[in-house]
C-alpha cells in the first residue's frame, strides 16, 4: 500500500474525529504503529484540530466549574477499570429506533408498566389502611372482651350476694354509725353476713365514706370484749358481698379506720358497729 495515498485518503481525519468504523480503526492503529509517517500525519491533524478548538472555545457558565470540581472531589463511586482501552472509544451510537410493530409493543409495555406501578401504589395504600383498621378492631375487640369479663365477675358477685341475703342460714348483723358514740360518719351503714353453719363472715358495705389515701377500713369481731381482726375492706369491691375471715364466735362486729394493711388491735376511730 502506498503510505502517502493512505494518509491522504481522509482516514486520518476520519479516525481522529471518531467517524471511522471498527475495521478502519483497527487498520489505522496498525498502520500508526508501523509507519512513523502515518503517526506524524495523525499528530499533525490532532494538533490542528486542538488548536482550532482552543481558538473556537466558548466559556461555559461559571458555576459549572464548582459543580464539576466538587463532584470529582467527592469522587464518583464507580470503580475504575485499570485496563487500557483504545483511545478513541467510538462506540457506535445506538439508534433509538425500533421496527414499526416493536415500538407499539414497547410503548404498550411502558404504559402497562406505568399502570401496574400505579396500581401497586394504590393497592399498597389500601392494604396499609385496611391493616390499620384491622389492628384497631382487634384492639377494640380485646377491650370489649375484657369489659365483658369484668361485668361477668361483678354479676357473679351480685348473684352470690343475693343468694346469701336470701339464705336462711345466713345471719345478718346490721352495723350503723348511729350505734357508735362520736362516729365520724353517723349515717354510715354496713352489714355482716355470718354463715351459721361454716362461721364464715361476709361483709357488705351499704355506705361508708371513701377513706383517705394510706388508710383502710378494718372489720373487728368483738369476742368477750376482745377485738379480733376479721379482715380488711377493699372499697373497690363496691357494695358487693366480700368474704372476710372465719369467726367462730362473737358478740359484736365493728369497723374502724386504720393504717393501710390493718392493725393487730384497733387504733383508729370506730365508724359503725352492730350487735349479733
Amino acid at each position: 500500500m502506498n503510505i502517502q495515498e493512505y494518509i491522504s485518503s481522509g482516514i486520518v481525519e476520519s479516525y481522529v474525529l471518531g467517524l471511522a468504523d471498527e475495521a478502519e480503526r483497527a487498520e489505522f492503529e496498525q498502520m500508526c504503529s508501523q509507519y512513523a509517517e502515518v503517526r506524524a500525519a495523525r499528530d499533525t491533524f490532532e494538533l490542528s484540530l486542538e488548536q482550532h478548538a482552543m481558538a473556537a472555545a466558548v466559556a461555559p457558565p461559571a458555576h459549572i466549574r464548582e459543580t464539576v470540581l466538587q463532584q470529582l472531589a467527592a469522587g464518583p463511586s464507580v470503580p475504575v477499570s485499570k485496563t487500557a482501552a483504545p483511545v478513541v472509544q467510538m462506540r457506535p451510537v445506538k439508534r433509538g429506533v425500533l421496527p414499526g410493530a416493536m415500538r407499539y409493543v414497547a410503548a404498550a409495555s411502558i404504559v402497562l408498566l406505568m399502570g401496574s406501578m400505579g396500581l401497586n401504589v394504590y393497592y399498597f395504600n389500601q392494604y396499609r389502611s385496611f391493616s390499620q383498621r384491622y389492628d384497631q378492631l382487634v384492639a377494640e375487640q380485646t377491650q370489649l372482651a375484657k369489659n365483658n369479663g369484668i361485668m361477668q365477675t361483678r354479676l357473679d358477685n351480685y348473684e352470690q350476694t343475693m343468694q346469701a341475703l336470701n339464705s336462711p342460714y345466713m345471719a345478718q348483723i346490721k352495723m350503723e354509725g348511729k350505734a357508735v358514740e362520736a362516729s365520724p360518719s353517723p349515717d354510715s351503714k354496713a352489714t355482716v353476713l355470718w354463715d351459721t353453719r361454716t362461721k364464715d363472715v361476709y361483709l357488705m358495705v351499704n355506705s361508708l365514706p371513701e377513706p383517705q389515701a394510706g388508710m383502710q377500713y378494718q372489720l373487728w369481731a368483738i369476742v368477750d370484749n376482745q377485738p379480733v381482726d376479721a379482715g380488711m375492706l377493699n372499697m373497690e369491691k363496691g357494695h358487693m358481698m366480700v368474704k372476710m375471715k372465719n369467726i367462730p364466735r362473737a358478740q359484736l362486729f365493728a369497723i374502724t379506720l386504720e393504717q393501710e394493711g390493718g392493725s393487730p388491735t384497733p387504733k383508729g376511730k370506730m365508724y359503725v358497729m352492730g350487735k349479733v
Binding site: 481522529v16 500508526c32 490532532e46 484540530l49 486542538e50 477499570s81 483511545v87 472509544q89
Partner: peptide
C-alpha cells in the same frame, strides 16, 4: 472515570476528551 482507559499511543489527550 475513564482516564485509565486513555492510551497516549493512540492519540492526544484532547482528542480523547473531544470524542
Amino acid at each position: 472515570r475513564r482516564i485509565e482507559q486513555y492510551d497516549p499511543a493512540k492519540g492526544r489527550l484532547f482528542t480523547w476528551m473531544m470524542n
